[in-house]
Structure formats: structure tokens, C-alpha cells
């Protein structure tokens, strides 16, 4: 069995895994990172979205062996220094979640969207989240939350050295 070394939410794990082990099952069943849920078999729903080396990926469609040497951020590692990420806060403030099952993937996809486009229009937000399905909210408050987080992050980036701004 291949040996992998993966840094997940700041902690490095070394494990021997079956090649077929999906990254999402590695996170959930091996590492206990159960904040990342699974919603489909076909890469459609996006519930399992995590950041792999900074980019959003659907962890049900990546093998754990493929993550060898990578850095993975899940919803559980998004808050830094005990401070919630602005995207997490704005999802709360704008009531952008109901059952919360799509929320980890949605939040991570949204942070990735802002990394690419720090000031998206509503249409760009909707397009940027097309890979993440939500059955509860009708998306309206999710769009608002991303808009709000974008504004807050742009503001705080302007207030600090832009090179150090977190996106």
C-alpha cells in the first residue's frame, strides 16, 4: 500500500493507504475530519469541497494517494488563530445556510472564488458557485454572504499591507 504524507488543517499525517481510498474518506474515516460531508457520487453536489494546495477540489473525486505531499484545508481548518474566516461570519450573518450540509463545501468554494475575483458581481458569484448544490436556501442569501465577505475582505486588505491580506 502506498505511503502518503498529507498536511491537513496544519497537521501532517503519514499513512499507508489503499490506492482506491477517496480523499474524502481519508479525511472522514481515517483522520476524523468529519466536518467535510459527502452528498453525491458524480462530482455534482460539491458538499465535499476542500482546498488542496489552495485550490477548491471535490474531495470525493481525488484519491488520497493523489494528495500525497499536498496541503489540504477543510472547513475545520479555515478559522485562523481562533478567529472565524470572514466567509464563515458572513454566512452566519446573512442566514446563508439552513440544514448546513452543503455549507462547508459552499464556504470553501466561495473563498476560492474570491481568491480569483476579490470583487465579484452577483452573477459572477452565482456562476462561481455552480458546482455546489444547496437544497435549502435558494442561494439568495449565499450570494449576499459572499458579497458581504468580499466587501469585508477588501476593506481589511486595504487597511493592512495588501501582501499580508488573507484571501
Amino acid at each position: 500500500m502506498p505511503r502518503i504524507s498529507v498536511k491537513v488543517d496544519g497537521v501532517t499525517y503519514d499513512d499507508d493507504v489503499e490506492p482506491r481510498l477517496l480523499l474524502v474518506h481519508y479525511l472522514r474515516d481515517w483522520l476524523g475530519k468529519v466536518g467535510t460531508p459527502i452528498g453525491c457520487d458524480t462530482t455534482n453536489c460539491g458538499a465535499c469541497t476542500v482546498l488542496m494546495d489552495g485550490s477548491s477540489v471535490k474531495s470525493c473525486s481525488v484519491l488520497a494517494v493523489q494528495a500525497d505531499g499536498s496541503e489540504v484545508t477543510t472547513i475545520e481548518g479555515l478559522a485562523a488563530d481562533g478567529q472565524m474566516h470572514p466567509m464563515q461570519k458572513s454566512f452566519h450573518e446573512e442566514h446563508a445556510l439552513q440544514c448546513g450540509y452543503c455549507t462547508p463545501g459552499m464556504i470553501l468554494a466561495a473563498t476560492d472564488l474570491l481568491r480569483d475575483n476579490p470583487n465579484p458581481s452577483d452573477d459572477e458569484i452565482r456562476d462561481g458557485l455552480e458546482g455546489n448544490l444547496c437544497r435549502c436556501t435558494g442561494y439568495q442569501n449565499i450570494v449576499r454572504a459572499v458579497r458581504r465577505a468580499a466587501a469585508e475582505m477588501t476593506e481589511s486588505a486595504a487597511a493592512t499591507d495588501p501582501k499580508e491580506a488573507r484571501v
Binding site: T43, T49, D112
Partner: peptide, 9 residues
Amino acid sequence: VADPAVRHR
């Protein structure tokens, strides 16, 4: 093609 996360891979 697909969506941003799929386009990353």
C-alpha cells in the same frame, strides 16, 4: 466546462 472545482483538477 463543469465548475471551478472540477476545472482545478
